[in-house]
């Protein structure tokens, strides 16, 4: 992990479906994603965008029998995890790749002390004695800002923000190279969210971890991510570095997201929402998945499926409107 541009994670053409009683939900539809060492990539989108399913695939956690990883490759440190046995997966989960879940109230075991829960992963991966692992777990609690004397307490004795710190300590226990954070601060109050994000940033730098940050909050993205993938109905519609997405917005959906948020620095009288609602994932629109809600869509968008194309070295967009001469979005790009 010396080279600066080393890819620690490659997702190629990942396709995931959930099947039940004859209906097929197309959750993730052929996405590609690269994670470079020590970078943070944000997966942004609304309910049903396929963010969480993507994250679960990375850990081999898509629930069977309904869930099927149909296609694609997920390469972590040179190995395709889709071809691994359950045993091999167990060996990399927590060690090479770890996950922080959204809801700290349910992610922890209520009948196990927090110290034990952190130590569990250390014992599994580092082949050390329990006492040693527990001592290490207590140290980790200090690292995430909790008094180590509280290692023997149970999750219900902690507040929401504290529990999320414990979840983070568990994820970081074996210093994984890749951390997947699924809406880690969504359940927290803003002042606590600020504390937790700040801590995550510091620890990520200190541990040299690469991170995938799943969120619906563009404010959180601006805070913590280096690159952003905007997802909608299982597709990546726009991809780029932070400045590409925020200052050189190219996809109509990304524009719609920005226009929908009340901005505290701007005295908007009315918001400009995106028309309509999320498409039914078991019956996705033909052509561009966003066309029924897109203010720029024309006939061609109803039939032709846009590919994610490079428009600069760092910036990709999937929108065929750019084939039209002189096309640009309404959002004023600085």
């Amino acid at each position: 992990m010396n080279s600066n541009d080393k890819k620690v994670l490659e997702v190629k053409n990942l396709t995931v479906t959930y099947e039940s009683e004859g209906s097929v939900v197309e959750a993730v539809n052929g996405i590609n994603l690269d994670l470079t060492a020590r970078k943070t990539v944000g997966l942004v989108g609304e309910t049903g965008a396929g963010k969480t399913t993507t994250a679960l695939s990375l850990l081999g956690l898509v629930q069977k029998p309904q869930g099927h990883v149909k296609n694609g490759k997920i390469i972590i440190n040179g190995k395709n995890i889709l071809e691994m046995t359950e045993k091999e997966l167990e060996n990399i989960r927590g060690k090479e790749i770890a996950m922080i879940f959204q809801d700290p109230m349910t992610a922890l075991n209520p009948v196990m002390t927090v110290g034990d829960q952190i130590a569990e992963s250390i014992v599994k991966h580092e082949k050390v004695k329990y006492e040693e692992a527990f001592a290490k777990a207590s140290e980790l609690l200090e690292t995430v800002g909790i008094d180590k004397a509280r290692a023997k307490e149970y999750p219900h004795q902690f507040s929401g923000g504290m529990r999320q710190r414990v979840v983070i300590a568990i994820a970081l226990a074996c210093r994984p190279g890749i951390l997947i954070a699924d809406e880690p601060t969504t359940a927290l109050d803003v002042t606590i969210q600020a504390q937790v994000l700040d801590m995550m940033k510091k620890l990520k730098d200190e541990y040299e971890t690469s991170m995938i940050m799943i969120t619906h909050d563009l404010g959180v993205v601006a805070e913590i991510c280096d690159e952003v993938a905007v997802m909608y109905a299982g597709h990546i519609l726009e991809y780029g570095v932070l400045e590409d997405i925020f200052n050189r917005t190219k996809h109509p959906y990304t524009e719609g997201l920005f226009n929908s948020i009340p901005d505290i620095n701007d005295d908007k009288i009315r918001l400009v929402p995106i028309d309509g609602g999320m498409p039914d994932p078991s019956n996705l629109p033909k052509g561009c998945v966003f066309h029924p809600r897109c203010p720029y869509a024309d006939e061609k968008c109803k039939t032709e499926k846009p590919e994610l194309k490079n428009i600069s070295e760092t910036h990709q967009v999937a929108c065929i409107a750019y084939d039209r001469p002189g096309f640009s979005l309404g959002r004023s790009n600085s």
Partner: peptide, 14 residues
């Protein structure tokens, strides 16, 4: 503190 904690979706407004 509350106002300063809001994550703002604007890179220039840090």
């Amino acid at each position: 503190a509350l106002l300063s904690s809001i994550p703002v979706p604007d890179l220039e407004a840090r």
